[in-house]
């Protein structure tokens, strides 16, 4: 009776034949990683070949700042800047010093953002890439200082800035100092903008809190990765405060596009082309007086 199937509308996942089996082949002894979206086991080698996107459902896996740079910039073109800027436990906040040490050991980065200068398809730019595995890219004094320096560096040299954001927000272990980084980075982005230079922000999963309320939303062009959660307040906090059920897709990239807060959603594999084209488009036209 298989030929009558087209008359029949499946009511749920099971009637559709359940979860699709993976069209990926896993070699013997190969290390795999489960996709958080389609739950298939994906061999790491295929993830690397596919810009850390699921080859089955295109879910964009979270990735480290170094992995992102690997896919994004021209080979050997990246020069890291300000890598020695590190935070201090100015508040002597309970447990913070230890947390910093264990995080650095586990993550291999010294802080929550990597800055530098690079070429993308031959186009020069200054760029910062936030690091999800360093306290979820939270912004303390070091992150604020590095991003501020990067904008100032780009302003002095007439370079455009590309910024990849991923952040849980301000780093509360640095109290009011971390809050002030929002104004500090915004000031630097403003100076860069007033010099007529181009800044594109690419918001990746998740971009929230004080980062959303500062440099993430200050780009001339603001892009988002598919499926990224982007917002100011956390979804759980909103649910608890308002005691209302959140709408489907709340604070997802599509939601922001619909409400007019991002310019486009660009899949990871297209970002190199899109960003290099935007860099070329913003080189300053003949219309400038």
């Amino acid at each position: 009776m298989d030929f009558l199937r087209f008359l029949y509308k499946p009511k749920n996942e099971l009637e559709k034949g359940g979860r699709q089996s993976a069209p990926v082949t896993v070699g013997e002894g190969e290390i795999t990683k489960p996709c958080p979206n389609c739950h298939n086991q994906i061999p790491l080698s295929q993830l690397w070949e596919n810009a850390h996107c699921c080859p089955i459902c295109d879910h964009h896996f979270r990735m480290t700042s170094r992995q992102r740079l690997h896919y994004l910039v021209d080979r050997d073109s990246f020069t890291e800047l300000f890598e020695d800027v590190r935070t201090k436990d100015v508040l002597s906040f309970p447990g913070y010093q230890k947390k910093l040490e264990t995080t650095e050991n586990a993550c291999g980065e010294k802080e929550g953002v990597v800055c530098g200068e690079a070429l993308i398809n031959g186009e020069p730019c200054a760029l910062f890439v936030m690091e999800p595995y360093f306290m979820m890219g939270s912004m303390g004094a070091a992150v604020g200082e590095k991003i501020t320096r990067l904008f100032d560096y780009a302003t002095e040299r007439g370079l455009p800035v590309l910024g990849f954001t991923v952040s849980g927000g301000a780093r509360m272990q640095e109290g009011i100092i971390s809050l002030m980084q929002m104004a500090k980075t915004s000031g630097a982005a403003l100076r860069h903008s007033q010099a007529g230079l181009f800044y594109a922000a690419v918001l990746t999963d998740p971009t929230t809190g004080g980062v959303t309320a500062s440099f993430a939303m200050e780009g001339d062009v603001i892009l988002a990765e598919p499926g990224a959660t982007i917002g100011f307040a956390g979804a759980r906090v909103i649910e608890q405060t308002t005691r209302r059920k959140l709408p489907q897709g709340f604070q997802k990239a599509d939601f922001l596009l619909k409400h007019g807060f991002v310019d486009a959603i660009v899949p990871r594999k297209q970002q190199r082309e899109t960003l290099s084209m935007l860099l070329r488009m913003h080189k300053g036209g003949e219309g400038r007086g």
Binding site: M182, A183, S186, A189, L190, T212, A213, S214, F215, A216, M217, E218, G231, F232, A233, G234, V237, I238, T241, T242, R244, L246, P247, F250, Q251, F255, H259, G260, F261
Partner: peptide, 19 residues
């Protein structure tokens, strides 16, 4: 922090106000 505040861009509004 509310649903509509997010829809209308609370983060963007704060960022622009600072700037």
């Amino acid at each position: 922090c509310g649903i509509e505040a997010e829809e209308r861009g609370q983060g963007e509004a704060i960022a622009q106000s600072i700037t």
